[in-house]
């Protein structure tokens, strides 16, 4: 039996594909931002907070890094309602992706923070910078510049991993592909097209991060690998 590909069979479903693409992009953008913010807090506390706080956060980071994302997602979506916390699929997806990205990024960021010499912070304080100012300009921003390539990869991994949220019926790109193939049985074409879209998203994200990084960290020549 020969293979006959019919990509035109997908054209009536352009609307579903667009809807899926929008969901994937929005989920990625929102969780990248929220994940980063949470990661900064976690990384800061993991370096500076009391021992018991560090222990708890260490547990969160290790648990997240050593279990599959799909299990984390199922745990949040199916498991939390057992406690009376009822959340819809998109919120669960958002929560799981944020917690996942934050755990990985906090660990990357912590290494970046710890690479800052103590003397630099003291020097900034001597120059009259406030505690917050010196932390921001001397520790946080250089740490971000240092870890930026790793951060880029991590955000792309989370975007690709978001394909899994289709399993709790979030209408993302993968869900759109599943939907289409259940209607017209053109599974190969649907999955191939959507895979290509993911690839373009990944390439696009890398370029975007590169552009933003060049602007943000222009002061660090050669700081970006």
């Amino acid at each position: 039996m020969g293979l006959t590909l019919d990509f035109l069979a997908l054209s009536p479903y352009a609307g579903e594909l667009a809807r899926g693409l929008v969901t994937t992009v929005v989920l990625t953008v929102v969780t990248t931002l929220s994940g980063l913010m949470l990661a900064i807090v976690v990384a800061y506390l993991k370096v500076h907070a009391a021992t018991w706080v560090r222990r708890i956060l260490g547990g969160y980071v290790e648990l997240t890094r050593n279990t599959p994302f799909i299990v984390q997602l199922f745990f949040i979506f199916f498991g939390l309602p057992a406690f009376g916390i009822k959340i819809d699929a998109i919120t669960a997806a958002f929560l799981a992706m944020t917690l996942n990205l934050a755990a990985y990024t906090a660990e990357i960021l912590r290494a970046g923070i710890e690479a800052t010499g103590r003397g630099q912070l003291e020097a900034a304080r001597t120059l009259g910078m406030s505690k917050l100012q010196s932390y921001r300009h001397v520790v946080l921003v250089p740490a971000f510049a240092r870890i930026y390539p790793a951060l880029t990869s991590q955000c792309i991994i989370v975007m690709l991993g978001s394909a899994v949220v289709s399993q709790i019926s979030v209408f993302d790109l993968t869900f759109a592909a599943n939907f289409i193939q259940s209607r017209n049985f053109r599974s190969f074409e649907a999955y191939l097209l959507v895979t290509l879209v993911y690839l373009l998203l990944a390439v696009g994200m890398r370029q975007l991060f590169l552009l933003v990084g060049r602007r943000l960290f222009a002061f660090r020549q050669g700081g970006l690998a």
Binding site: L160, S162, A163, A177, Y191, Y198, A202
Partner: peptide, 11 residues
């Protein structure tokens, strides 16, 4: 590296 593992499995 640039596509979801889930898609690779589906394909």
């Amino acid at each position: 590296q640039g596509t979801p593992l889930l898609m690779q499995l589906f394909l």
